[in-house]
């Protein structure tokens, strides 16, 4: 094993890992906000709203993420109206296309997780809150969401880990994140396997941080 060559590759790999972390954090934050809207949309008594959010969830969960990324990155650029719109500076960049695709994808999965968490709350609690004269926003802030968030923690932890891995697909649209960086070095050097092993170790470290974080949060929010 050539230690020197591996050491010289480390800065590129770390730079790639930094891009991966950015993609994960940004798309998880944006995705969670959108997922709240999706969950409320799915639970809405308005047929049109629940129908539209239901279709959105179906579309994004029944197709592979890579297709979604390519459709946004390559597909949208086909239309002149989009190339001439104010959105083009954003949609031209692989970085933002990856974040948009990852956000839309995780929002569909997280929305369903959240919906399950909200639906798991016993109706008696909502009746009790109403009987105390709580307004709807207050009821959601104090009763529904805190409990729903606690229920979904394990499932959402899995979704976060899936997202770390999903960011690797951004390398298919020229973005040099961790997998892309490892691949670039691998095709140039005589030690391709070592590069992927180091990249794998970095991914495992990220997964480990998330599992520990979720475990800590579960302990923190456990009742009784």
């Amino acid at each position: 094993m050539n230690v020197e060559m591996i050491l010289s590759a480390l800065p590129t790999l770390f730079a790639g890992a930094f891009v991966t972390v950015q993609l994960v954090v940004l798309s998880l934050l944006l995705g969670f906000a959108l997922a709240l809207a999706v969950a409320f949309g799915r639970l809405s008594s308005n047929r049109v709203i629940s129908g539209i959010t239901g279709a959105y969830v179906f579309l994004f969960r029944s197709t592979p993420l890579l297709v979604q990324i390519f459709l946004i990155y390559y597909g949208l650029g086909q239309f002149e109206s989009i190339r001439e719109s104010f959105l083009w500076p954003v949609l031209r960049e692989a970085y933002w296309c990856a974040i948009i695709a990852l956000t839309l994808n995780t929002a569909a999965y997280t929305g369903e997780i959240l919906r399950g968490g909200i639906q798991a709350i016993p109706f008696g609690q909502i009746e009790a809150a109403r009987a105390l004269g709580m307004s709807r926003p207050l009821l959601y802030r104090r009763i529904v969401l805190p409990q729903a968030l606690r229920t979904i923690l394990p499932a959402y932890g899995n979704e976060m880990i899936q997202m770390v891995q999903a960011t690797s697909l951004a390398s298919a649209i020229t973005l040099v994140e961790l997998t892309g960086a490892a691949r670039t070095i691998a095709s140039r050097s005589f030690q391709p396997v070592e590069m992927f092993v180091i990249a794998g170790a970095l991914y495992l470290a990220m997964t480990f941080v998330i599992t520990q974080g979720v475990r800590w949060a579960e302990k923190k929010t456990a009742t009784g």
Binding site: I161, V164, Q165, A166, T167, S168, L169, S171, T179, A182, F196, A199, G200, Y203, L204, T207, F208
Partner: peptide
């Protein structure tokens, strides 16, 4: 295997 991307 469950901690690294399939692409890797």
């Amino acid at each position: 295997v469950r901690g690294v991307p399939a692409l890797l």
